[in-house]
Design a protein around this nucleic acid. Structure first.
Ligand SMILES: [Mn+2]
Ligand SMILES: [Mn+2]
Ligand SMILES: [Zn+2]
Ligand SMILES: [Zn+2]
Lengths: 160, 160
DNA sequence: TAACGTATTGAAACTCATTTTCAATAAGAT
DNA sequence: ATCTTATTGAAAATGAGTTTCAATACGTTA
């Protein structure tokens, strides 16, 4: 399990049907479907984990070798504007891109030693929330859960 | 009221005794107490909200005008390593520094209408946490759970 | 199918926060 | 007071992301 993995493979994604929908959304918004853009769309729409711009660049070049990094950034910004992709700030100032349908905000594992954060999909909180609603009369619309501790790498380091 | 409000009055600071404690901690860890370092310690130990490195630099110069920005960064890294300060990534991609005692994980129900926060006793999170530990290899030491919604009073008001 | 107008491209230059380098300085031990 | 060396700050480097701009290719129209 890598730390950079957001929306990781351990948690299967819903049926996407995404790529064609994304292409239609791009055209409908008045943009051209160029080869580098197609390459980026394909990479991001099919990824089930978050990727850096550099990773997306590398993968896009398998489909259209001439694709420039600048265009990767521009296309990602477009996808974020269209609401198809989420830009997540992570670690030492970097950002990472994830299909919007895989993004569950407000759930992080944060390592107190190396300060890295991993996003996780939240499961099983329903009962906790319902119990609180019953006890307090609140209506809960959203929640934010952060777990603090030590990542595997830092645990190993501490054992030595 | 926003999620981005860091520090501030939501978590009243414990009796500080902070500055002297910080100076002792720095010395105990084998570091010298230089004038620029003292300036940064004073600024951050006395701030009750999160600050950027640039803001800390500006404030530190009021105390020791010769203080360089590089040293501000170095001192902040030291304070983070010592566990006295938390480095928080903000939405805009930058980072911000906050006294660790102002960033204590907690359990709050927060009303989105009247902005009142209520503490609640947390129950039933153990399974969720254990599941995450199993899946990610993290060792979880603490957690912070915030529930957002409407308090009973604001629910009534909305019904009219 | 060819021609055209313009949105899009990529190389290079730029920005801006943070880090590294390195010679000069000052903390603090003796 | 002397000495050792951790620490300093200016300048240069880094690295992710953006802007510039002349060349290109998308897709509409003829
Ligand atoms: Mn959840
Ligand atoms: Mn709890
Ligand atoms: Zn770690
Ligand atoms: Zn309320």
């Amino acid at each position: 399990m890598s730390f950079n993995t957001l929306g990781g493979t351990a948690f299967p994604s819903p049926a996407s049907g995404g790529l064609e929908g994304w292409q239609r959304a791009v055209r409908r918004a008045g943009h051209r479907l160029t080869r580098p853009r197609r390459a980026v769309l394909e990479v991001v729409a099919q990824a089930d984990a978050a990727l850096t711009a550099a990773e997306i660049h590398r993968l896009a070049r398998d489909r259209h070798p001439h694709t420039g990094l600048v265009t990767v950034y521009r296309t990602l910004n477009l996808l974020v504007e269209l609401g198809l992709v989420r830009r997540l700030r992570i670690e030492e100032g970097g950002q990472v891109y994830l299909r919007a349908d895989l993004h569950q905000p407000g759930h992080h594992l944060i390592c107190r030693s190396c300060h890295r954060a991993v996003e996780f999909p939240c499961r099983g909180l329903e009962e906790v929330v319902e119990e609180m609603e019953r006890r307090t009369g609140f209506t809960v619309q959203d929640h934010w859960l952060e777990l603090f501790g030590l990542c595997p790498a830092c645990q190993e380091e501490q054992e030595q």
